[in-house]
Design a binder for these strands. Structure first.
Lengths: 151, 151
DNA sequence: TTGCTCCTCACGTCACGTGAGGTGGC
DNA sequence: TTGCTCCTCACGTCACGTGAGGTGGC
C-alpha cells in the first residue's frame, strides 16, 4: 500500500539528509513533492525513495557533478516515457524496434562509464594485492630462517 | 635523470590544475615544494608527480574527503619511513617481522575500501547488463515475427 | 497543550575556479 | 625587451551543513 513518507524518513531510508533532498529539488535533479502548497510538508511515496536511491548511487559510484547527473536522470525519465508508450501498446513494429534500440543505447552509455570505473578499481586492487603478496612472501622467508641474528 | 618540473607541467602530467596543487599544499595534503622562497616558483621532480598521481587516484576512486585522504596519505608516509628503516638494514628479526606485519595491515585497510567499491560497481554493472539482455531478447522476438502488423 | 518534525531564509564550509595585479626566468 | 609561466590575494561557485525563527500535524 502506498504509505506516505515525510522528508526525514526518506532521508533516513536513503542514507542522506533532508537538506540534500531539498537541494536536489531546488536544482531540478528531483521532481518537487507532488501537490504541495509552499510552506507545507513535502510528502513522498515508495517510488520517490527508489528514485532517490538510484540518483545517490549513480552520484557515489560515477563521481559526476550534479549537472552531469541531471542529464543522466533526464535521459532516464525520457526512457520512462518510452516505457509508458510501450506499455500502453505501440502500433507499428518500427516504433517498437526504435524504442528498444534507444533503450539499449541508453544502457550502453551508462555501461561505458561503469566499466571504465570498474577497470580503474581493478587495476588498483591488483596493485595492492601484488604488494601484499610480496610482503607476505618476505614474512615467510623470515619464518624459514629465524636464527639470522647479528653477531 | 632528475628533470625539474614547474607546477603547470606537473598539473598537465597528472590531469589536474595548478590551483589544486597549491590548495593541496596549503592544507597539508602534499608536502611543500622543496627549498623554496615565498614568492618564487615551485619546482618538482618525477617523484612528486608519482605521489600526486597516487593521491588523485585514491580521491577519485574512493570518493573520500580531503581530510580522510590526508589520513591515508599520512599512513602512507609512515609506511615510507618503515621502508627506509628496512632498506638501511634492520637489526632484529622481530623488528623486521613487525615492519612487514604493519605493511600488510596498512594494505589490508586500503583493500577493504577498494573491495567495497568494487562490489558496488559490480552490482550496478550486473543490473545494467541484465536490463540490456532483456531489451535485446525482445528485439530478437520482433525480428522473428516481423509481420505482426495491425489490421 | 506539549513535543516532534517540518518549513524557509540565510550564512558557513569544503574544494576548488577564476580573474586582478605583479614578479621572474628562458 | 617581449612572451610566457609563475606568484599571491581574494572573491565566486558548487554541494551541501548548520543554526534562527516560525508553522503544522499526531
Amino acid at each position: 500500500m502506498g504509505s506516505v513518507l515525510r522528508i526525514g524518513e526518506v532521508a533516513e531510508l536513503t542514507g542522506t539528509t533532508a537538506r540534500t533532498i531539498r537541494y536536489y529539488e531546488e536544482i531540478g535533479l528531483l521532481p518537487p513533492a507532488e501537490g504541495r502548497q509552499p510552506g507545507s510538508h513535502r510528502l513522498y511515496e515508495e517510488g520517490d525513495v527508489e528514485r532517490l536511491r538510484e540518483v545517490l548511487r549513480l552520484k557515489d559510484l560515477l563521481g559526476v557533478s550534479l549537472e552531469e547527473l541531471r542529464e543522466l536522470v533526464e535521459a532516464e525519465s525520457a526512457r520512462a516515457a518510452l516505457r509508458r508508450e510501450w506499455r500502453d501498446g505501440v502500433e507499428s513494429p518500427e516504433r517498437r524496434r526504435e524504442i528498444l534500440t534507444q533503450g539499449i543505447e541508453h544502457i550502453d552509455r551508462q555501461l561505458d562509464l561503469i566499466r571504465a570505473r570498474r577497470d580503474e578499481i581493478a587495476r588498483l586492487e591488483a596493485e595492492l594485492t601484488a604488494r601484499r603478496r610480496r610482503l607476505r612472501s618476505r614474512l615467510r622467508e623470515l619464518d624459514r630462517e629465524p636464527t639470522e641474528a647479528p653477531a
